[in-house]
């Protein structure tokens, strides 16, 4: 079986700015990976490349052995760091939209999670607060039975109580054939759920290791290690 995500000498430049340079990375199925790094380290660029929203300047990125395209979009469930839902639909209509376009979308899961978070499916998105919209988005993304979940800052805008529920949702909603990549700088909050961490610094990989190994060898928490590696 192909690794679910593979970067080979992946490079991305915006004009003269080097966002990613010569990144080599392999992500296996069944893991929850923290993609960590300070602002502007290339986390979002990497995730956008995996989604085909950007094209690499050099090297290649492969999802399940394929270049980003229609086939990979079917198996990638992506949560961008901004609100991508339109304002004029109600939550139920957005659910129908997802059902129409993604064959691996499971609406029952969505309704169940909406109920847990007390979000009314008949509310117009326009009337929802920013945090609630983010929750709806995450619920939609996690309701897909995808092979890889790419979550860009999934907990940035929601309150700590919802954060716990969301992280729980993430852990309980993926299967052993899927990988979850969570990009964030709120490390302490997600540390407990991670299997592996990837540290990005200035567009290169500073570290990519299992969490257990780091704790054993360095005797530090990921949060502690992060503060040390990226000390200003």
């Amino acid at each position: 079986m192909n690794p679910i995500l593979e970067c080979r000498a992946l490079t991305k430049k915006y004009g003269n700015t080097q966002a990613l340079s010569d990144v080599n990375l392999t992500i296996e199925r069944g893991r929850i990976i923290g993609l960590l790094g300070p602002n502007g380290s290339g986390k979002t660029t990497l995730i956008k490349l995996a989604n085909g929203l950007l094209t690499p300047t050099g090297g290649e990125i492969l999802i399940d052995g394929k270049h980003p395209g229609i086939e990979t979009k079917k198996i990638v469930s992506y949560l961008p760091e901004r609100t991508y839902l339109n304002n004029w639909m109600c939550v139920r209509e957005v659910i129908d939209f997802f059902k129409d376009f993604y064959s691996n979308f499971n609406p029952e899961k969505t309704y169940e999670m909406l109920k847990r978070l007390a979000i009314n499916p008949d509310d117009k998105l326009k009337t929802l607060s920013k945090g609630t919209k983010e929750k709806v988005q995450l619920i939609l993304v996690m309701s897909r039975e995808a092979d890889i979940y790419l979550l860009d800052e999934p907990i940035g805008g929601v309150d700590p109580a919802a954060r716990d529920y969301i992280l729980n949702t993430i852990i309980s909603n993926y299967n052993e054939n899927a990988a979850v990549i969570i990009s964030t700088h709120l490390i302490a909050d997600i540390e407990a759920v991670l299997d592996d961490v990837v540290f990005l610094a200035n567009g290169t990989i500073a570290l990519a290791e299992p969490v257990d190994k780091i704790r054993e060898e360095q005797g530090k928490s990921i949060d502690g290690l992060f503060r040390e590696v990226f000390k200003c």
Partner: peptide, 17 residues
Amino acid sequence: KNLLGDEGYLMFTLPVR
């Protein structure tokens, strides 16, 4: 708005040409 604004993040990650 739908393709090049924020909604583009959804539209361009749909499995559609």
